[in-house]
Amino acid sequence: MRELVKFIAMSLVDDPDQVEVTEIPGDHMIIIELRVAPEDMGKVIGKQGRIAKAIRTVVKAAAVKEKKKVTVEIV
């Protein structure tokens, strides 16, 4: 799941080297924290969060397959 978010983020930003993704496992839920360069924030969030929403939708589909609940936080 971490690799999925990392791959998407790296494909969208100008500075892929600064993409950092950490996975915080929990009993019922996995939290994925995504960090990018400050200049690239807009590239993973988008107008009215449209890009962030698309990332979450795709991650949700992947999570269904693994029967886990996943949230993506952009920090």
Binding site: S11, L12, R50, I51, A54, I55, T57, V58, K60, A61
Partner: peptide, 8 residues
């Protein structure tokens, strides 16, 4: 999901 994949 299809729309999200298309957008990304």
């Amino acid at each position: 999901t299809l729309d999200a994949l298309q957008y990304l």
